[in-house]
Simulated assay, not measured.
Amino acid sequence: MIEGIHADGAPVPVGRYPHARRVGQLLFLSGIGPRTPGNNVIPGNVYDPAGKLVDYDIVTQCHSVFANVRAVLEASHCRWDWLVDVTVYLTDMHRDFQAFNAVWAEYFPDINKAPCRTTLGISALPTPIAIELKCVAAFPEPR
């Protein structure tokens, strides 16, 4: 059974795709960024009077992206601790990697229970965000 999932508590996707799809015991989340649900404001972004992005707070964006992932997991009847693999996209690896790692450690304090992770430095994302996560979770096997 394949099921698409849309989470009311997460920001609307920027393209024509679901927040997640469940295939058997696996849940695949589409790329999720830090936009605020309901208004698409990007927490931590700083704009000049002309509306040009001049700075951002990666820690604020990290907390927001984790909240959005949690919202999609909850809408999917999935738990945070069922995450098994996370791909992280950072638009400035040199500036943000250390701060991201510190926030990651807050959400996954036990390294042996943390999901696997790959972190990539990329040149841009479709909206002016500094981070996006691509996640896979696994539901427990039915007993």
Results as ranks from 00 to 15, higher is better:
residue 34 P to D: 00
residue 127 T to F: 14
residue 5 I to R: 02
residue 73 L to A: 02
residue 40 N to I: 00
residue 115 P to Q: 01
residue 108 F to I: 03
residue 10 A to R: 00
residue 137 A to Y: 09
residue 135 C to V: 03
residue 138 A to H: 12
residue 58 I to G: 02
residue 138 A to R: 15
residue 103 V to K: 03
residue 129 I to R: 15
residue 28 F to S: 03
residue 98 Q to R: 10
residue 107 Y to S: 05
residue 42 I to P: 01
residue 105 A to L: 09
residue 103 V to N: 04
residue 114 A to Y: 01
residue 52 K to P: 01
residue 18 P to W: 07
residue 79 R to S: 13
residue 87 T to Y: 10
residue 40 N to Y: 04
residue 30 S to H: 11
residue 33 G to A: 08
residue 8 D to I: 10
residue 133 L to R: 06
residue 35 R to E: 13
residue 69 V to Y: 07
residue 32 I to D: 01
residue 133 L to E: 06
residue 34 P to F: 00
residue 63 H to N: 10
residue 61 Q to S: 05
residue 102 A to V: 09
residue 24 G to S: 02
residue 88 V to G: 10
residue 72 V to N: 04
residue 60 T to Q: 15
residue 71 A to E: 10
residue 38 G to Q: 05
residue 14 V to D: 14
residue 56 Y to K: 00
residue 13 P to A: 07
residue 35 R to Q: 14
residue 56 Y to G: 00
residue 100 F to C: 06
residue 63 H to Y: 14
residue 46 V to P: 11
residue 43 P to I: 00
residue 91 T to N: 15
residue 57 D to I: 04
residue 94 H to L: 12
residue 123 S to D: 14
residue 70 R to W: 08
residue 49 P to I: 02
residue 122 I to C: 13
residue 104 W to Y: 14
residue 81 D to Y: 12
residue 129 I to Y: 08
residue 126 P to D: 07
residue 74 E to S: 08
residue 30 S to T: 08
residue 23 V to G: 10
residue 28 F to K: 03
residue 26 L to Q: 01
residue 126 P to Y: 05
residue 90 L to W: 07
residue 63 H to G: 07
residue 14 V to C: 13
residue 71 A to F: 08
residue 92 D to A: 06
residue 24 G to F: 01
residue 61 Q to G: 06
residue 56 Y to P: 00
residue 129 I to N: 12
residue 53 L to F: 00
residue 113 K to F: 13
residue 101 N to P: 02
residue 7 A to L: 04
residue 62 C to T: 08
residue 85 D to W: 09
residue 69 V to P: 07
residue 3 E to K: 12
residue 8 D to Y: 11
residue 10 A to F: 00
residue 105 A to Q: 15
residue 120 L to D: 11
residue 61 Q to C: 03
residue 62 C to I: 04
residue 116 C to T: 12
residue 102 A to C: 12
residue 30 S to A: 15
residue 125 L to G: 08
residue 98 Q to N: 11
residue 87 T to N: 13
residue 131 I to C: 05
residue 61 Q to K: 05
residue 99 A to L: 12
residue 36 T to D: 06
residue 5 I to F: 07
residue 53 L to S: 00
residue 102 A to E: 15
residue 82 W to T: 09
residue 56 Y to I: 00
residue 136 V to W: 13
residue 140 P to V: 01
residue 95 R to V: 05
residue 6 H to D: 13
